[in-house]
Design a protein around this nucleic acid. Structure first.
Lengths: 263, 263
DNA sequence: AACGTTGGTTTCGTCTTGCGGAATTCGATC
DNA sequence: GATCGAATTCCGCAAGACGAAACCAACGTT
């Protein structure tokens, strides 16, 4: 338990600090410096520093009045985000496969990042010419159907904040005018789905819809992407309608989790 | 965001490693060394060490085949345990207050630790002479009503494992005979509640019941403790019955969300 | 099949900076 | 006001973290 002779690359301070974090967490309630120090056999001074660091990073919470530490918001946020992503992915996957077969094009799933969408899953069509992002990649919100679908359903204030950021030009067709974007977003709300034509990547287009949580907040988006030539307007409209149906189902299933933060 | 000039006690390696952890977590999926390094502007070598360390501690998971890292079991376990504890506490608190008023004695809530019960909440009776544990304290399973209530409803194999551990003698009355303990546990299952008389602390007694999750696994226990003299057998029986009712309600409410207790 | 490139692992010498004993302050309690 | 336990702060020492650069391994390309 004390010796870690195996991996020569483990950084001691980090390892010990993690032990502290774990102990505090497992304790299930506030715990004082001395107790941690005694339990882990780490000198008080060192323990103190770790507790301070963990607190500064938000992984722990320091109760000034009792001088005790317990789990902090950061850790909970991370865990929550992770659970959320896993859940969406699990819920969406079967439907994505179905959609892929239906249209024989790649289906994408992304969550809202900060000013971007982050791909968390995709089901590729079995065609030689296919549009594909990579899981984990971030793309701008304003140049993708995924992003537009999310933007359109974001609360007023947040949407404005997003559009105030400098908008990068991905292709010659990328929308950069505030006016034009907002006009499109209103259109997205009406139609229930967003489209993008060569605005993110030349020759590629995409149809996307938001996945909403119980409060109607767009936590993620689902899309079908294809080469421009293979997806005429009429087919895109059909895809949009299907996506809407699918996303609605996922949204409902997703909205059952309590998501309670401890006070 | 980069500079942290405030607290002179933050240890750099720990802080940076936590940033790595956070990045990996927020990324929502597997991420490679180089990506982390680039994103955080931390040299590859250093990043590598942190990833190794975090992995060794179980906070990250290293996918050998893709050479990528994602959230590990440790973090999830911690988060789950925490959520579980918070949830039980939140659910139990109102009922505990009610019970306290009803019997005018201290009401305790504890979760199963490893071979022990850990107090996670208590509502004290307003009497000068009162039995009180401290939140966060651990007591042996076999010497407390809380522990017996849990033991009695544990799966066969796990109960055996618990009783194989050396049993510490808390008072002259502490049960140490395997036979006697098992006889009592069977009795607990029949009655639905456990009692303890001066076995954990001289002059104190306790009545406890388990709180079960959806699988019938005893994740926690609820108890009323009092000085021996104030709680005759008849009153203890009454307390047991009430506790059972209350715990049943809590168990049902608890069994809606997938929560597992950590080891 | 040789080559170049990308990304991971290892080495090694430097010198930062984390460590922990001890001294100090703080805040309860008697 | 005195005392005790606990949390901070100080400080000198050397452990050990750092990161440049070398080294590999695995692909993809020509």
């Amino acid at each position: 338990m004390a010796k870690k002779p195996d991996n020569p690359y483990v950084v001691q301070p980090v390892m010990k600090a993690l032990r502290v974090l774990e102990l505090v967490a497992r304790h299930g309630h506030e715990i004082a410096l001395t107790a941690v120090s005694k339990e882990l056999r780490i000198p008080k001074t060192t323990t103190f520093r770790y507790l301070q660091t963990l607190t500064a990073a938000g992984f722990l919470d320091h109760n000034r009045s009792t001088d005790r530490y317990n789990l902090g918001p950061q850790l909970r946020a991370i865990a929550r985000a992770d659970a959320s992503v896993s859940k969406i992915r699990a819920l969406a996957r079967p439907a994505m496969i179905e959609l892929m077969h239906e249209f024989n094009e790649t289906v994408n799933l992304a969550v809202k990042g900060n000013g971007t969408v982050v791909y968390i899953d995709l089901v590729e069509a079995n065609r030689s010419l296919r549009m594909q992002a990579r899981i984990g990649e971030s793309h701008p919100m304003h140049s993708t159907a995924l992003g537009k679908a999310i933007l359109a359903f974001l609360p007023e204030a947040e949407r404005r904040r997003q559009l105030d950021l400098p908008l990068t030009e991905m292709t010659g067709r990328t929308l950069l005018e505030r006016e034009e974007i907002e006009r499109q977003l209103r259109q997205v709300v009406r139609a229930g789905y967003a489209t993008e034509m060569g605005e993110n990547e030349d020759g590629a287009m995409c149809v996307g819809v938001p996945i909403l949580d119980e409060d109607g907040y767009p936590v993620a988006a689902l899309s079908i992407s294809a080469p421009l030539m293979r997806m005429p307007r009429s087919l895109a409209a059909k895809a949009g309608t299907r996506l809407r149906e699918v996303a609605a189902t996922i949204s409902v299933q997703f909205g059952s989790h309590p998501t309670t933060t401890a006070l």
